[in-house]
């Protein structure tokens, strides 16, 4: 991101913090597709992507005034998205404990036509084999976040991020190629 776009992002964030709905709308338009990709990588369900992304942006709208450093908006937004996805998966898991699904209702496949290519299907299945936190890690890397930013998001060290990322990439590669074959 160049300096001018960082400045305009900073301006937008500051305007949104003052309650300017136009700026808030511009932020949503600018990030909706990226947050959708990030959310899909973690949850693996395209039919819940829009609902989760909406939750993320509603949280953003309500909390943006408390963001101390407007230039940190992007990592902050992806941290919000990551936490929302992990909460969603946790709630789903809890719901399954209290309302057990019949075997035929477990792992319901994506609606027909939802996954239209084999390579996407293979990636989706490979991601599903990883832990949600590892999926979030890989999705953050795909989003272009630096190791330092990811370390900040996960509240850990850069060295730990590198090690976990290496393991997650290896696992993903193994599952991806075994699904492809």
């Amino acid at each position: 991101m160049d300096e001018s776009s960082t400045t305009s992002l900073g301006d937008r964030v500051r305007r949104a913090q003052r309650g300017d709905e136009v700026a808030l709308r511009e932020l949503i338009v600018a990030y909706q597709h990226r947050v959708a990709g990030f959310t899909y990588a973690i949850t693996g369900r395209s039919d819940s992507v829009e609902d989760i992304v909406q939750m993320v942006f509603v949280k953003m709208a309500r909390a943006i005034a408390r963001l101390k450093a407007p230039e940190q908006f992007e990592p902050w937004l992806f941290r919000l998205a990551r936490n929302t996805c992990i909460d969603h998966l946790r709630r789903q898991k809890l719901r399954r404990i209290f309302i057990p699904f019949a075997p035929e209702h477990e792992n319901v496949p994506e609606p027909s036509g939802a996954v239209d290519t084999e390579e996407l299907d293979a990636l989706r299945h490979a991601l599903a084999q990883l832990r949600p936190k590892d999926r979030a890690l890989l999705a953050l890397v795909q989003e272009g976040r630096s190791h330092a930013e990811i370390a900040e998001t996960f509240k850990t060290s850069v060295a730990a991020v590198k090690a976990r990322l290496h393991r997650a990439r290896e696992q993903l590669r193994q599952h991806y190629h075994s699904d492809e074959n």
Binding site: A36, F38, Y40, S46, V115, R124
Partner: peptide, 9 residues
């Protein structure tokens, strides 16, 4: 994956 997710919005 990103394209597919974006199309859900």
């Amino acid at each position: 994956l990103r394209e597919h997710a974006a199309s859900q919005i």
